[in-house]
Design a protein around this nucleic acid. Structure first.
Length: 547
RNA sequence: AGGGCUGUAGCCAAGUGGUUAAGGCACCGGAUUUUGAUUCCGGCAUGCGUAGGUUCGAGUCCUACCAGCCCUGCCA
């Protein structure tokens, strides 16, 4: 693995390459993506998904999908299904599908083993007392009065917990480690709590549920995970992860390595807050195109390849970094520039009469300027068309090279036209009369240069379309810093009633196009129909003029 | 008696004691263009949080300081 591509090099890949070279874990690599099914996947998760699946792929290993479903109060089957759909859509196939809840039996047995070794005890303190006695960051904790219970007593108490003899919160199982540890997670962490709730997979079989710290490391070890990759906030927990695996009789010892989570400007990567946006109907659902969820990005038209490319480009480090939205948009544009067929659409129509065209004509137009394999389609040009309001100006700004009164402009793929007359209503242009230079189809006019090229839609064959322009959902680069209501951009959705050419209208949902000179758009996953087209803005074209 | 981490350009990021500190995004020039897009060419750190030290040689090693993030859920 010495010829690892430089572009994808990061400290984790370097470490794994070394581990393989040293024959660690028998030279095998096993990773896992371990979401909790309590919400939809968001951009932040895509970094972890690409890392875990990418590493397995790169090193000839495997990557499991494992649902960390130890807190039934917040989890549901809806989220499980959504997560699976999103991972597959991103282009990854997991090796094995697991649920932490599948391990509840083994987890219980390992808890018993810790009890038998005198390394765990049942604590009958209240939650408040446990908190107070844990101490603070600068003061050590105080031992629980139940800390020295006998093995036998702990065993029967824990069995009673499992048997439902205790009410929620009445007792917990705690590891017996060190109440004076400077690391808070080592001050006798809770391993099991009592919750008389229905679990989406295990039903009413259990009324005790294991905590993350106890569950995660053991689940990793059971699955033979070699490299357990997680985000920085678990750095402190690593010492506990190692402690648990060292003190139970499990043969495999997984190793945890932490990396910085993705922080994307103008996005929100808190599942709890995203859920609030959905619950309070600030957005139309988890897959609202403004949501930084995988489902939202999909509906907005971001190709999975673009998201993977983005994750590759931003790198993996231990530094808390903020990535600009422009970085993601670059990857989206780059993917779509190659893959999206070109079409024409007018968002803010201005009617233009072509006074000397005569009979409608048909024009062949290639679907992509650089890729002939994408073929051509036929456009009709008749004596009435729509152009973009912004492509005509009564009083043009400097360097304006579109249409002005008495000026000329090229209709994309068609003729050069001259604006002869402007019909205005209260000073705003409502219709143009233009004459066509019939000697300019496929060639430049004689004796003069026409710089501007504008897009158009034929009024006779064009299809009225709803075009949704989704902007930033938040007006704060770090929306988590302020109250949710304050962070919301009230103008995050602008809807245009425009026209698209027939070859755009007839597309199936989720088809991506570049509407020339405007941006990349996608036929809406849910609402698009050929007779009632609905397109969502994916991302605008780079614009160095910026009107 | 606090502990765990992180600082390389506007934003990411490579760099593992040895030419002149990779690359990408953004930005700025210029060429091509029937998309003000794309593409192409060029520019963009005398300096690596700061200050000392070790060394023939330091972004890399040492010391001290500064700044930021995380940890006191029966959440993950």
């Amino acid at each position: 693995m010495s010829d690892t591509p430089v572009s994808g090099s990061n400290f984790i890949r370097t470490m794994i390459a070394q581990d393989i070279e040293n024959g660690k874990h028998g030279g095998r690599v096993g990773t896992r993506f371990p979401p909790e099914p309590n919400g939809y996947l968001h951009v932040g998760h895509t970094k972890s998904i690409c890392l875990n699946f990418g590493i397995a792929e790169q090193f000839g290993g495997t990557c499991n999908l494992r649902f960390d479903d130890t807190n039934p109060e917040k989890e549901s089957i809806e989220y499980i299904n959504a997560i699976k759909r999103d991972v597959e859509w991103l282009g990854f196939q997991w090796n094995e599908e697991h649920y932490a809840s599948d391990y509840f039996g083994q987890l219980y047995d390992y808890a018993l083993e810790l009890i038998d070794k005198g390394l765990a005890y049942v604590d009958s303190q209240s939650a408040d007392d446990i908190r107070v006695n844990r101490g603070t960051l600068t003061e050590p904790g105080k031992p629980s009065p139940n800390r020295e219970r006998s093995v036998e007593e702990n065993r029967s108490l824990f069995e009673a917990m499992k048997a439902g003899k205790f009410a929620d919160g009445e007792v917990v199982l705690r590891a017996k480690i060190d109440m004076g540890s400077p690391q808070m997670c080592m001050r006798d962490p809770v391993l099991y709590r009592v919750r008389h709730v229905h679990h989406h997979r295990t039903g009413d079989q259990w009324c005790i549920y294991p905590m993350y710290d106890f569950t995660h490391c053991i689940s990793d070890a059971i699955e033979g995970i070699t490299h357990s990759l997680c985000t920085l906030e678990f750095e402190d927990n690593r010492v506990l992860y190692d402690w648990i695996l060292a003190n139970i009789s499990i043969p495999h010892k997984s190793e945890q390595t932490e990396f910085a989570r993705l922080q994307l400007e103008y996005a929100m990567t808190s599942k709890r807050k995203l859920k609030t946006l959905v619950d309070e109907q600030i957005v139309a659902g988890w897959d609202d195109p403004r949501m930084p969820t995988v489902a939202g990005m999909r509906r907005k038209g971001y190709p999975p390849a673009a998201i993977r490319d983005f994750c590759e480009r931003i790198g993996v480090t231990k530094k808390n970094a903020w990535i600009s939205m422009g970085q993601l948009e670059f990857s989206v544009r780059e993917a779509l520039n190659d893959s999206a067929a070109r079409r024409m659409a007018v968002l803010k129509p201005l009617k233009v009469k072509l006074t000397n065209l005569g009979k409608a004509i048909e024009i062949e137009q290639s679907n992509h300027p650089k890729d002939p394999e994408m073929g051509k389609r036929t456009l009709q040009l008749s004596d009435e068309i729509y152009i973009e309001q912004d492509d005509f100006a009564l009083e043009p700004p400097p360097k304006f090279k579109r249409l002005i009164e008495g000026g000329e402009v090229r209709l994309r793929g068609a003729y050069v036209i001259r604006c002869d007359k402007v019909v205005t209503d209260n000073g705003v242009p409502v219709e143009l009369e233009c004459s066509v230079d019939l000697d300019t189809l496929g060639k430049n006019p004689e004796g003069r240069k026409v710089k501007g090229v504008i897009h158009w839609v034929d009024a006779k064959t064009g299809v009225a379309a709803e075009i949704r322009e989704y902007g930033l959902l938040f007006n704060e680069a770090n929306p988590a810093k302020v109250e949710l209501e304050q962070a919301i951009n009230p103008a995050s959705l602008v809807i245009y009633q425009g026209f698209v050419e027939p070859a755009a209208a007839m597309a199936t949902p989720e088809t991506q196009f570049q509407f020339e000179r405007t941006g990349y758009y996608v036929a809406d996953q849910h609402d698009h129909q050929p007779e009632k087209p609905v397109f969502n803005l994916t991302v605008g074209l780079r614009d160095s003029f910026g009107i």
